[in-house]
Nucleic acid binder design. Structure first.
Length: 558
RNA sequence: GCCCCUGUAGCUCAGAGGAUAGAGCACCAGCCUCCGGAGCUGGGGGCGAGGGUUCGACUCCCUCCAGGGGCGCCA
C-alpha cells in the first residue's frame, strides 16, 4: 500500500501533510492549545527558497487573528502535536508563523522508481473521477481558412483537453460547425458570384460578402472538378464550397496537432427538432416575449442589461437562439456535467447572456465555463498584419505553422495566459528559432535519448540500479522538480490555465541540464551509472509527458 | 456612456494574500582531453500612479492614467 502512495508522487505527499496539519489543529483544540475557532482551508505552498523546505503552511498566520494568539506560539503548538512520518525529514517553525516541511532524501530518491514504473501515466491525477466534460473550441464558421487567433484557441483547447483527460475526466473535444445562418448565406452568394465570374459571367459580389482570394480559388477548383453544371444551383454550389472549406480547416488543425472527437453541425439542431424543443421550453417558463415583430429572450429578467433577439422579424433564428439549443443539447440531451467553451475576445459580450440562458434552462451556470482568449496580432517586424476574413487580408494560420513549425507555434501560444493579448512577430520568431525555449526543452529530451542510446549500445542494464545513491544536490533538485508534475496538472486542470505547462517544462529542462553538467551519467562506477540512468529515464518520462500534454513532439534526435 | 481583458527587467512573458518578485531573449564576464555547447556558471537591472482592506498586497477593493476588445433583428 505504501508503495502505491509513493508512486503517485507529490500530490499524495502534499495531501498527506495537509491531513497531518488538520489533525494537529483539531487535536490542539481538543487540548485547549487553540481556541475552538473555525478552521480555514489548509493550503500548502511550495516555498521559493529551498532553505524553507519542500512545503510550507501559513495556517498559524491565518489562525492568529481569530484565535487571538501569537502565530509563532500556534505554530509551535501544532508542530509539537505532529508525529514525524517516514517521508518527512524535519518540520520547522519560522517567523512570523510558517511551518516548513522538508522531505527525506531517501524518500525522494525512491520516487524515481515510482516514476519509471508509472511510465507515461506518471503525473496523472484523478481530479475528475470520470466526470463527463466537453471542451468546445475553434468552432469557426466554414466561410474561410483559419487565422492566427483561431490557432490560439485551438492550441488552448486541445492542451486543456489533454490535461483534463490526464486528470481523470472523460473528455470530449468538439467543434461546432456554424453551417446555418446569415454568414453562411453571404458565403453561398459570394461563392456563386465568384463561380460565375470564373466562368466569364459578369456577376456582382454581395456587399457583405467574402472578398478573400481563396473564394476565387475555391470557385476555380469547383469548375475544374464539376465544370459549369452548377450554374443556377447556388445552394448546391454552396454545399460543395462549405465541404471544401471544412476540409481545409481540418487539415490546418491537423498540421497544428489538433483533433476533435465530434464535429457538431448547427443545422442538425433544426433537423433533430432540438431547436423547437428548447424554444417551447423557454416559452413555457415565460422567458420569451414578442415585440417589434421579433421574438426576444427576456434576459433583463435575469439581471442582464438588455433583452436579446431570438428570432428576427424575417423569421430567421439568430446565432444566440441556436446556441441556446446547442447548450440544451450539451447539458440535457448529452449529459455533460461540465462544458468548457473557448471563445475569442470578440465573443466576450456573449458570455453573460449565455450564462443567463443556461440558468433559465435550469442548469447551474457554474457548469458552463467560458474561456475568452484575447486577441492575437501578427507582426512582421514593425508592420502589423490585420486579420479580417471579409476584407480578404487574411493571415492564415497555415502560413504561420508552415513558417515556424507546429511545436514553436504551440509553445509560444501556450506560454501566454489566455487573458493577455499578444503580438506574434513572425520575423522575431524566425530569427530566434535557434535560441528558442522550445528547442531548449526539446534539446533536453534529445540529450536524454542520446544518453540512453549510448547505454543501450554498451549493453548496460540498469534495472537493478540503486536509486539511494542519488544524493547529489543537482540529482535531488531534479527529483524534486519531477515530483511537481502531478501538482502542475492539478493546477492546470483546476484553473483551466494551460500556460503553466511551458514554464514547468522549461524548469524541468533547466534542472536536467544542470544535473547533466554536474554529474557524469555513464562512467566507470557501475553502481552509480545504473542509478543515474534510472534518474535520466525518469527525467525523460517527465519531459516527454509535459511535451505530449502540450501537443508537442519529444524528439529522440535533433 | 456601459461591460470585459491587460499594464511586472531593455524586449516577450510567468507569479493560487505570505519569507530575498522569477524565466527566456538581449547585454557583460567566465566554462570544452570525457555521455549532444541547441549546454553550464556568474553579473547588472522591474511591480503604471494614488488611496483603502490586512499582521502581511504584484495579488483583493476604489479612483485615475495608458493600451486592446465588446456593446447588431451579424456570428
Amino acid at each position: 500500500m505504501a508503495g502505491r502512495i509513493h508512486r503517485c508522487g507529490g500530490v499524495m505527499i502534499k495531501d498527506e501533510i495537509t491531513i497531518l496539519l488538520k489533525e494537529a489543529a483539531l487535536e490542539a483544540q481538543r487540548r485547549d492549545l487553540l481556541p475552538p475557532v473555525t478552521m480555514p482551508d489548509i493550503v500548502l505552498e511550495r516555498p521559493q527558497n529551498p532553505e524553507h523546505g519542500d512545503y510550507a503552511s501559513t495556517l498559524p498566520l491565518k489562525l492568529a487573528r481569530s484565535a487571538r494568539m501569537n502565530p509563532l506560539t500556534i505554530a509551535q503548538n501544532l508542530v509539537s502535536l505532529i508525529q514525524l512520518p517516514d517521508e518527512i525529514d524535519s518540520i520547522a517553525v519560522a517567523s512570523p508563523g510558517f511551518i516548513n516541511f522538508s522531505l527525506k532524501s531517501d524518500w525522494l530518491t525512491k520516487q524515481v522508481e515510482g516514476i519509471v514504473s508509472a511510465g507515461e501515466r506518471y503525473g496523472d491525477v484523478d481530479l475528475g473521477k470520470g466526470a463527463k466534460v466537453q471542451v468546445e473550441f475553434v468552432s469557426v464558421n466554414p466561410t474561410g481558412p483559419l487565422h492566427v487567433g483561431h490557432g490560439r484557441g485551438a492550441i488552448l483547447g486541445s492542451t486543456l483537453a489533454n490535461v483534463l483527460a490526464s486528470s481523470g475526466y472523460d473528455v470530449a473535444r468538439e467543434y461546432y460547425i456554424n453551417d446555418a445562418g446569415g454568414q453562411m448565406d453571404a458565403f453561398h452568394r459570394s461563392l456563386y458570384a465568384r463561380y460565375q465570374q470564373a466562368l466569364g459571367i459578369d456577376a456582382q459580389m454581395p456587399s457583405e460578402g467574402y472578398f478573400g482570394e481563396y473564394m476565387m480559388d475555391i470557385a476555380r477548383e469547383i469548375i475544374a472538378e464539376e465544370g459549369e453544371k452548377l450554374s443556377g444551383k447556388p445552394a448546391e454550389l454552396g454545399k460543395i464550397g462549405v465541404a471544401k472549406v471544412m476540409k481545409t480547416i481540418k487539415s490546418d488543425l491537423e498540421a497544428l496537432g489538433v483533433s476533435f472527437d465530434v464535429w457538431f453541425s448547427e443545422n442538425s439542431l433544426f433537423e433533430q427538432g432540438q431547436y423547437d424543443r428548447v424554444m417551447a421550453f423557454l416559452k413555457e417558463r415565460g422567458y420569451i416575449s414578442e415585440k417589434e415583430g421579433a421574438v426576444w429572450f427576456a434576459s433583463t429578467a435575469l439581471g442582464e442589461d438588455k433583452d436579446n433577439v431570438l428570432v428576427r422579424s424575417d423569421g430567421a433564428p439568430t446565432y444566440f437562439a441556436t446556441d441556446i439549443a446547442y447548450h440544451y443539447n450539451k447539458f440535457i440531451e448529452r449529459g455533460f456535467s461540465r462544458v468548457i467553451n473557448i471563445w475569442g475576445a470578440d465573443h466576450q459580450g456573449h458570455v453573460s447572456r449565455m450564462k443567463a440562458v443556461v440558468s433559465a434552462l435550469g442548469i447551474d451556470p457554474e457548469r458552463l465555463q467560458i474561456i475568452i482568449s484575447q486577441m492575437v496580432t501578427l507582426k512582421r517586424g514593425e508592420i502589423t498584419l490585420r486579420a479580417s476574413k471579409r476584407t480578404g487580408e487574411i493571415i492564415i494560420l497555415r502560413e504561420l505553422v508552415d513558417e515556424v513549425g507546429p511545436d514553436v507555434c504551440r509553445f509560444f501560444f501556450l506560454s501566454h495566459s489566455a487573458d493577455s493579448q499578444m503580438d506574434f512577430d513572425l520575423e522575431l520568431a524566425k530569427r530566434h528559432s535557434a535560441d528558442n525555449p522550445v528547442y531548449y526543452v526539446q534539446y533536453g529530451h534529445a540529450r536524454i535519448a542520446s544518453i540512453l542510446r549510448l547505454a543501450q549500445e554498451r549493453g548496460i542494464d540498469y534495472k537493478e540500479g540503486n536509486v539511494s545513491l542519488l544524493t547529489g544536490d543537482s540529482e535531488l533538485a531534479l527529483i524534486r522538480k519531477m515530483l511537481q508534475l502531478p501538482e502542475v496538472l492539478e493546477l492546470v486542470a483546476s484553473t483551466l490555465e494551460p500556460h503553466h505547462l511551458p514554464y514547468y517544462a522549461l524548469d524541468v529542462a533547466t534542472t536536467f541540464h544542470n544535473f547533466y553538467e554536474k554529474c557524469r551519467v555513464i562512467s566507470s562506477d557501475e553502481a552509480l551509472t545504473s542509478a543515474r540512468l534510472k534518474l535520466v529515464e525518469a527525467a525523460q518520462i517527465v519531459l516527454a509527458k509535459t511535451l505530449v500534454l502540450m501537443g508537442m513532439t519529444a524528439p529522440e534526435k535533433m
